[in-house]
């Protein structure tokens, strides 16, 4: 065993106007994962600086490009880093748990998978609202049919990727549709995937920022219109 799992992992955190919480989120995650790259997606507040103070490397988009682009930039940056074997996409608003991330990397390190995707619906820890459950389930059904990839949670931002997965996954969709795009990329590249139950904390803060159900319409049209 050369280095510990956490030291071989890069956390990729897309960041957009989260200056209230990001420092705390990063500092907390740094207790476990020493390498964190925050991709500041053209925030108009002090997010980038806060992330730096939390201890992350910050890559800054000159203009707002959307979360999909931020993820891809983060992956590209982390891939150039020495000793980076695992890549975890992690939200900047404190919804994700560091323990879940570590568990996913541990699973990935067995070497028989390319990507581990978090799911809210494999156990009962997460409590989203009723409408959200219905919309998310419908999205999942639809994606299963379209991509042939069987996942129970279509839009979970917590994922652990191997080098291979980090290299091959293309993200063209700038806006929220990137989550669906990642799923279809798993299918297209025939990546070996598995889901793991994760716990999302719906705090008042994350709820106030969370995407509205209407966004599923936008996601659908983004995916189909060229």
């Amino acid at each position: 065993m050369s280095a510990s799992l956490a030291a071989r992992t890069w956390l990729i955190v897309p960041l957009y106007n989260e200056s209230q919480v990001v420092r705390e989120v990063i500092a907390e995650a740094r207790k476990t994962f020493p390498h964190i790259v925050c991709v500041d997606d053209g925030s108009s507040d002090d997010s980038a600086n806060e992330a730096r103070l939390g201890g992350a490397v910050v890559v800054q988009h000159p203009i707002n490009l959307g979360q999909g682009a931020a993820l891809r930039t983060g992956l590209d940056f982390a891939l150039t880093q020495k000793g980076a074997d695992f890549f975890v996409t992690f939200d900047s608003d404190g919804q994700h748990s560091v323990d879940d991330a570590l568990a996913m990397v541990t699973r990935l390190s067995k070497g028989d998978l390319d990507i581990v995707v978090g799911s809210r619906f494999l156990d009962n820890r997460t409590k989203p609202g009723f409408v959200k459950v219905v919309v998310l389930k419908l999205a999942v059904k639809f994606e299963n049919i379209m991509t042939g990839v069987k996942l129970t949670d279509a839009h979970n931002g917590l994922r652990a990727l191997s080098r291979k997965a980090a290299q091959v996954i293309r993200i063209d969709q700038n806006r929220m549709a990137h989550a669906s795009e990642i799923v279809s990329e798993i299918g297209r590249n025939k990546l070996r995937y598995e889901e793991m139950p994760v716990h999302l904390v719906y705090t008042e803060y994350s709820k106030s920022k969370g995407q509205s159900v209407w966004n599923s319409v936008n996601i659908l049209s983004d995916l189909f219109l060229k």
Partner: peptide
Amino acid sequence: ARALALSEAS
């Protein structure tokens, strides 16, 4: 923009 961000970072 992504290329710019990455080259700046490096």
